[in-house]
Amino acid sequence: MSALKDRLRADLTEAMKARDEIRSSTLRMVLTAVTNAEVAGKVARELTDEDVLGVLTSEAKKRREAATAFAEGGRTEMADKERAEAAVIADYLPEQLGEAEIAALVTAAIEQTGSAGEGMRAMGKVMGVLTPQTKGRADGAVVAAEVRRQLAG
């Protein structure tokens, strides 16, 4: 049984008692996504904390992307709602890495793989080292952009 999933359920109960609409609706959506992930595939399975974290990360990314799309479309009210939901989900994610921390990890990964002079051909090798280190702590697109920047330079 996932401790994180139990925490989400307990927090949903708290939010419902406190009549916190944004928090309770967001936690309901997240728990539904977790349940969907459990029954996806041929065999239903119980998700581990790491799996639940993966679901939370993807849900947070969806909220960020939707908020950006709504803001660009001039729908600020909807963008604010998406940002509020992303903030609720962020409470359950590990501390996000800053730009400087990502740059340092990328530099270390390039040194570790010996890819300094190889250019973009080394992208997969470097990302293979970085992905486990940054999973759930940084957006993969941001990490990939930094790898491209450092390999090109």
Rank of each mutant, 00 (worst) to 15 (best):
Lys81Phe: 10
Lys62Ala: 12
Thr113Val: 02
Leu56Met: 03
Arg75His: 06
Gly74Cys: 07
Glu46Leu: 13
Ser25Trp: 15
Leu31Tyr: 09
Ala87His: 01
Met123Lys: 13
Ala104Ser: 07
Asp49Lys: 10
Glu77Gly: 13
Asp49Met: 09
Lys17Cys: 13
Asp20Met: 03
Ser2Met: 11
Asp49Thr: 00
Arg45Gln: 10
Gly153Thr: 13
Glu46His: 15
Leu12Lys: 01
Leu97Ser: 00
Met78Gly: 06
Ala116Asp: 09
Ala145Ile: 06
Glu59Gln: 15
Lys81Val: 11
Leu27Glu: 01
Lys17Val: 03
Lys17Met: 14
Thr76Ile: 08
Val147Tyr: 14
Met120Thr: 11
Ala100Lys: 11
Ala44Asp: 13
Ala66His: 12
Ala18Asp: 15
Gly98Tyr: 04
Ala79Asp: 01
Lys61Trp: 11
Ala90Glu: 08
Gly114Cys: 09
Val106Ile: 06
Gly119Ser: 01
Leu151Ser: 10
Glu38Met: 14
Tyr92Lys: 03
Arg121Lys: 06
Lys42Ser: 10
Gly41Met: 04
Val147Lys: 02
Asp51Asn: 01
Ala141Leu: 14
Arg75Met: 06
Thr26Cys: 12
Asp91Phe: 05
Leu4Ser: 15
Asp6Ile: 11
Leu53Val: 00
Val106Arg: 07
Glu99Val: 03
Val142Asp: 12
Met120Glu: 07
Gly41Tyr: 03
Gly98Gln: 08
Arg19Leu: 14
Thr13Tyr: 07
Ala152Leu: 13
Thr131Gly: 04
Gly124His: 04
Arg83His: 05
Lys61Leu: 05
Lys61Gln: 08
Lys62Gln: 07
Gly54Glu: 09
Gln96Ala: 12
Ala138Trp: 00
Val55Met: 02
Glu77Phe: 07
Ala138His: 12
Glu46Ser: 14
Ala71Glu: 06
Ala66Gly: 12
Asp20Phe: 02
Arg83Asn: 05
Ala90Asn: 01
Gly98Glu: 08
Ala84His: 04
Thr134Phe: 08
Gly114Ser: 12
Leu151Arg: 08
Lys5Glu: 15
Glu46Ile: 14
Lys17Asn: 14
Thr131Tyr: 09
Ala145Phe: 13
Lys61Arg: 08
Tyr92Asp: 00
Arg45Leu: 12
Val126Ala: 03
Gly119Leu: 01
Ala90Trp: 06
Leu93Val: 00
Leu97Trp: 05
Ala40Phe: 09
Gly119Gln: 03
Thr131Ser: 11
Arg64Cys: 00
Gln96Phe: 04
Asp91Asn: 09
Arg45Tyr: 12
Ala33Glu: 02
